[in-house]
Design a binder for these strands. Sequence first.
DNA 1: TAATTATGTTACCATATGGTAACAATATAT
DNA 2: ATATATTGTTACCATATGGTAACATAATTA
Lengths: 198, 198
Amino acid sequence: MQQSLSRDEKRQQKLHVILSNAAKEFIVRGYYKTSLDDIARMQNVTKPTLYYYIKNKEDILVKCEQITCEKINAMLDMVMARDTSSLDILHAFINEYIKIITDDVARCHVRHRGQMENKELARQSIKNHKDIEFRVREIIRRGISDGSIRDCNSTILAILLFDSLNGLTSWYHSDGQVTLDELAEEIMALVTKGVSGK
Amino acid sequence: MQQSLSRDEKRQQKLHVILSNAAKEFIVRGYYKTSLDDIARMQNVTKPTLYYYIKNKEDILVKCEQITCEKINAMLDMVMARDTSSLDILHAFINEYIKIITDDVARCHVRHRGQMENKELARQSIKNHKDIEFRVREIIRRGISDGSIRDCNSTILAILLFDSLNGLTSWYHSDGQVTLDELAEEIMALVTKGVSGK
DNA sequence: TAATTATGTTACCATATGGTAACAATATAT
DNA sequence: ATATATTGTTACCATATGGTAACATAATTA
């Protein structure tokens, strides 16, 4: 039983390596330009071996999505339980979201969300994101109620916020000039104060 | 000569129809899932006919980009020539940018920018966008100088702004609930005032 | 009218790639 | 040790698709 667990762990680990490598490659070369042979080669295995860990190519996207959405929703659970102003909660959310999204698997999900060829999978993918967006909208709505957030169209604000945050996946790399904290600071300032001078 | 001009015009028109139809399809179905046969069928022609108007499939992306970047740069010329505060200029830019970007060809460009398989074309595509981003950064820098924009990292701000604006291409459709003016208003408010209540 | 140029078609190919069947080998459990 | 489930390989196929050559036709020009 001890051994059987370890086998299962190994399996999980290997799956994770496959997902991260595939995700990284999907990001830099694109989903369709990255073949399953390419991905297999990175693991030093052959293509059919991949099918022991994934159902098909699209399943890689689905799995990246599941992992990422679970993280985000768990984080939202934590953050929304706080007993502070909704603006503070929004702050915390942005901070944590940036941390989560700066990861190849998450990046891959953001970049390919809703783009599965299987209609049902695509629908589900869009719903997953909409659910998260809805929860953030709820934070904003509460903020408008408690006065910590100015009166605005919460739907549009949530979308704009996500566009900015998700946009990070295209340009931010942790080895670059800007540190994660500095970035979060700058986004916070933009979101709370806007750009106009005093 | 009169006739030869008309022939040239026809050619331009047909090219434009090809580009818009292809662009629309690339957006909804994706670049790789849309075949040249598909695109040809929309024009009621056959695939080889397309090659009279475009060099190859990727050339569609390139042409969409050229058209869009020309529009944006011309708009920037206009807007930056204004004799008002830089914050006003930024306002005007956002307004006009939204108008330009709400168009299938522009949408297609935004969604596929820098994703050409040909390395040199991809490089050029990224440069085109960086040039535009640089001009907006210049507006922000001037705004910081004249005090109309608060002191901030102009690079990050420009990127965040573009992410929000370009994100529109993924969700905004002119037939939806939100009107273009309302949308511009909301973005303006977010950019200038931020979200915090008074 | 004759010659030339622009526009379009049919038929075809080379290639890449997702996916599978059949077959080995290796570890685990009894 | 033996049976079983797991993990992996080689060989293969069906299909889609970007691109081209050769051929046909309509429009301009001389």
